[in-house]
Design a protein around this nucleic acid. Sequence first.
RNA 1: GGAGAGGUGGCUGAGUGGUCGAAAGCACAUCUUUGCUAAAGAUGCGUAGCCUUUAACAGCUACCGAGGGUUCGAAUCCCUCCCUCUCCGCCA
Length: 423
Amino acid sequence: MLDIRLFREKPDYVKERLSTRGAGLSSMVDEVTSLDEQRREAETERQKLQGDRNRISKEIGIAKKKGEDTSAIEAQVRGIGDRIEQIGRDADALDIKQREIMLGIPNLPHDACPIGDSAEQNPEVKVWGEKPSYDFQPKDHVTLGAQHGLLDFEAGAKITGSAFVVYRGQGARLERALINFLLDLHTTQHGYTEVNTPFVVKADALVGTTQLPKFADQVYHCQEDDLYLVPTAEVPVTNLHREEIVKTEALPIQYAAYTPCFRREAGSAGLGTRGLIRMHQFDKVELVKITTPETSMEELEKLTANAEVVLQTLGLHYRIIELCTGDVGFGSTKTYDIEVWAPGQGSFLEVSSCSNFGEFQARRMNLRYKDEHGKNRFCHTLNGSGTALARLFVALVETYQQADGSIAIPAPLQRYFGSEKIG
RNA sequence: GGAGAGGUGGCUGAGUGGUCGAAAGCACAUCUUUGCUAAAGAUGCGUAGCCUUUAACAGCUACCGAGGGUUCGAAUCCCUCCCUCUCCGCCA
């Protein structure tokens, strides 16, 4: 959520920044500004009346002690009470409306975020390694998975539905090995603290990290208990500190967490894609940082570098693109996407999205720290995948397939996997 | 799931309808004094919003788990919900 004061003081700046995301947002700014004016007017009136009531009610108490008759004043206060109720209703309604609209307005892209209309204009900022070449026709992971009995899409569809998969045998083992490898890497080499959270959360947590209310159709909801399946570990992990004033010395707080991620992918174009590319459930190791405003941008660089180490260690070719203003996510001020090369796909796959949310999420979840003057300020929050697993699995088996059909396991992964190759 | 106890400021804890945003203690901050591996005293010390302002101060409002209700007036009475603890039941 954005700071309402920014709307009051610099509406044109807010409009200008929002317009870099695309058309149609500036009318919301005007709507909020006018609503805010009405709301404050009602609020001020209500507070004035409440003050009157408090004062006169005290007088009643004093008069009663002296044994005086107070029926006339009581009637007067009753009248004030009625007006408070009326105006209070208006003020509350305006307040709810304003908050509702505010929750639907995206974050302002950072000045460092490149301007652009769509994904086509995302600049490529880095390429690491090169595309591997093969003296045979490389297969895709679906074929390789079937050949070695790693992936069973039919079973996934049978027990749950399409876009769910069952990992079997060496496939299940590889998935598990990757999770352990990633958690160990980030906790022992990059200073993250491992956390293992619930996989279902309440609505407030999703509001905090911006999945709700705007993207309600993308999360699985258990109606009976009003709980949601996590779409990413970002949600439970960032919300660990909601409603808190964290100690400044504790910043930056850095967490690494494994969770499965559940996504409805309603209306998603890629849902029919063959294989593991887009699933309703996939594993992910997520990195989360809570920082001061001063350091968040440099922490974003570090976070991205931490995710890159995954691909470097596994020897996978990748590139980093920077999302332009027209493509950057709802709550983000700046985002790097890391895309790994998948030879069987003949394309890059997004395995990590590293974002700095500024104070956007912190404001929603009331996450603050005390600055050097003892003043409470909102933290900055960041997160990035370190990395998403299904696609990492894809890149790995497709990259390391051999002419004889076997799949080599990169050396750093072997002790987790327990073998040098599959097949 | 059932029974009981309880949720008050950073912590402990008083407060059962009226000058209560809330006693007292601890912790913390500043100052003073003594003087030296510490003690005593003074003052200050919640959050958010509104109003105002260059800014600060002052002022006003709200907040005693959450949401409703009763009342001229609610931390205090009533209702619903949530959470914690104890016991019982069930259970990986």
